[in-house]
Simulated assay, not measured.
Amino acid sequence: MTKRASIASLIPASQDIYRKIVFEIADGIIGIDDHGIIRLCNPATESIFGWQSGELLDKPLEVLLPERVHGFHQRLVAGFQAGNTEARYMGQRSATIVGCRKDGTEINLGITILRTSAAGAPMMVAVIRDISDHVRYQNDLKRLAETDSLSGLLNRRAFRASVLQSVSANVAKFSSMAIFDLDGFKSVNDRFGHDAGDDVIVRFSEVLRTSIRATDVAGRWGGEEFVLFLPNLKANEAIAIVERIRANFTSVDFNWDGHLAANFTVSAGLAFAEPGFADFSDMIASADKALYDAKRGGRDKLVSIEMQQEALAS
């Protein structure tokens, strides 16, 4: 038997191997023609997207994608078709491709696409993996790394990063920074115990979280100090929010076994900057100075400072 004959004898066997791989692999394999119509679909794809056997054939690829990403996905595919590479992983380190199951639920996907042909016609084949569990795990790790475990608010590092991100999207807007300090917190731990102190921190965090807008950024600065960034508000509007937080916390009743009901207060310093955002550290320092004045002035009050443009430019 010649070498050419022995190779030819393996072709049918190799086709059976490839067919077995396609139909039994856990990853989805899907092929579309140059019009975006599904011409190849293995059972894993149907399982990933919740379709019955054979239902996806001859349907447009868009049935597997949320409507909001149709345009984006079409641009990705067009860019790949116009390029020179034969295979490409779709998505980015910070974002995954989002798919849509038949019931409308969304899933995160890892997709590798490659260029090929079938029966003389061009075809794109995608190997698809449902990575939703991995994405949820990564998001949980990120949330744990950014969140103060007791208060549930952003920790110091994450607060700063979130404020800077907010600032970059609203460069020419008004902005305010507030720092809160729980009055007499050491005496809470001394009189009622550290569990009571934790309870006070948790309750203030709840008041803070429920008194602000979705665009505001709140965090625990450390110990009994909390920070709040208020973008796109004029001075009187920012003052109203901080005063509401102060008043809402003062009205919270604390009832611990073996002790009479108690109420606590909070002092706040607020720094307000005109359009043309001040440096993060400058705003924190100004808010901290205002807080010091509030403490020195008797506590349970708000002191605000308007940062002058001359100071910002210096």
Rank of each mutant, 00 (worst) to 15 (best):
T2Y: 05
T2L: 04
T2E: 10
A5R: 15
I11H: 07
A13E: 05
Q15R: 15
D16H: 10
I21F: 04
V22I: 13
F23A: 09
G28E: 09
G31K: 08
G36C: 00
C41I: 11
N42M: 04
E46C: 04
E46A: 01
S47M: 03
S53M: 09
L64W: 05
E67V: 12
G71D: 15
H73P: 07
Q81H: 13
A82P: 07
N84L: 02
A87P: 04
Y89D: 11
M90S: 01
T96C: 10
V98N: 03
D103I: 05
G104C: 10
G110S: 14
L114A: 11
D130H: 02
I131G: 10
S132G: 03
H134K: 12
R136Y: 08
E146W: 00
G152W: 09
R160N: 04
A161M: 12
S162Q: 12
V171M: 14
A172R: 14
I179F: 00
F185Y: 05
K186L: 07
V188Q: 02
R191L: 13
G193Y: 02
G197D: 04
R213C: 06
T215P: 00
D216T: 02
V217Q: 06
G219Q: 01
W221T: 05
G222Y: 06
E224N: 02
E225Q: 05
F226C: 03
L230M: 13
P231T: 10
N232V: 08
L233R: 12
E237H: 07
E237A: 12
I241H: 02
R246Y: 00
T250Q: 13
W256N: 10
L260Q: 14
N263D: 07
T265N: 13
V266T: 07
A273I: 09
D279C: 03
F280L: 07
S281V: 08
M283Q: 12
S286M: 12
D288P: 02
D293Q: 15
D293N: 11
A294Y: 14
G297P: 08
G298F: 01
R299E: 01
Q308W: 01
A311P: 00
L312C: 08
